[in-house]
């Protein structure tokens, strides 16, 4: 039986986001704007990638990166604080909502955050008049990417035992992924074995898929398959970690 309790968890997250809308909005904008300025206009000025200019190349990567960051941070930080500091997670754990529904509700809230960030940068892209297309396929991949990183956020929050652990997780897992996943450069320019190694990162496949869709090319099947595989695997691991959580 499907536990509809996930909607309650999701509803609470949306209520909290509504109450701090301006904080969420400004928080979602700072990092991508910095990347746009640094890599798009700064370093990227005059750089050409293949046929197009660098801004057309880097924007889908920044969208993938922002969706990842917003979803992962939005889920992991709030959940970690709820577990370690406010202990509000206890109220949910003593309610009859199943661990899977708790996980799903949180991950869906991460999807909203990821999608929201992505939409903001798409808007900036439209204002800058980039030569890119943002169709339903593009947004579906953003959703899938946000889902995977929302699930990773739940998993990280459940496994870490302190705020310091959480920062370390971000430093050792998220930050290298942000820079090495072909966000700012094409994976093809790397020598082996690095080119193959960065294909381990789900964000690499997110960037590849979004870049293909934005330039109206067909998406490599492997990118979608790996991304979907990660989403499913991370969701299962996140659900199990909530189930095993003992306070």
């Amino acid at each position: 039986m499907i536990d509809l309790g996930f909607y309650t968890i999701f509803w609470r997250e949306m209520l909290a986001i509504r109450k701090k809308f301006w904080k969420v909005l400004s928080g979602s904008l700072v990092m991508p704007l910095l990347y746009l300025v640094t890599f798009g206009w700064g370093i990227g000025r005059g750089v050409r990638v293949g046929q197009g200019n660098y801004m057309d190349f880097v924007l889908p990567g920044i969208i993938a990166l922002s969706a990842m960051n917003s979803s992962f941070n939005g889920v992991s930080v709030t959940l970690n604080i709820s577990k370690l500091y406010y202990k509000t997670i206890e109220e949910i754990l003593v309610s009859p909502v199943s661990p899977w529904a708790i996980t799903l509700g949180r991950v869906l809230a991460g999807c909203v955050r990821g999608m929201f960030s992505a939409c903001l940068i798409v808007l900036i892209g439209l204002v800058l008049d980039v030569n890119l297309k943002f169709g339903p396929g593009f947004f579906s991949v953003v959703l899938l990417l946000s889902f995977a990183f929302g699930a990773l956020g739940v998993l990280a929050a459940m496994l870490t035992r302190s705020h310091e652990d959480m920062t370390n997780f971000s430093n050792f897992v998220i930050l290298p992924m942000a820079f090495l996943s072909g966000t700012f450069f094409s994976p093809d320019v790397l020598p082996e074995p690095f080119r193959s190694l960065i294909l381990i990162y789900p964000l690499t496949h997110g960037s590849i898929a979004l870049r293909s869709l934005a330039s109206a090319q067909s998406v490599p099947f492997s990118a979608l398959a790996v991304l979907s595989g990660y989403a499913l695997l991370l969701f299962v691991l996140a659900g199990l970690s909530v189930k095993r959580l003992e306070l």
Binding site: K20, K87, T88
Partner: peptide, 11 residues
């Protein structure tokens, strides 16, 4: 009702 006041303080 746990010992810590685990209310949703934003709400």
């Amino acid at each position: 009702a746990p010992q810590g006041l685990n209310l949703e303080i934003e709400l």
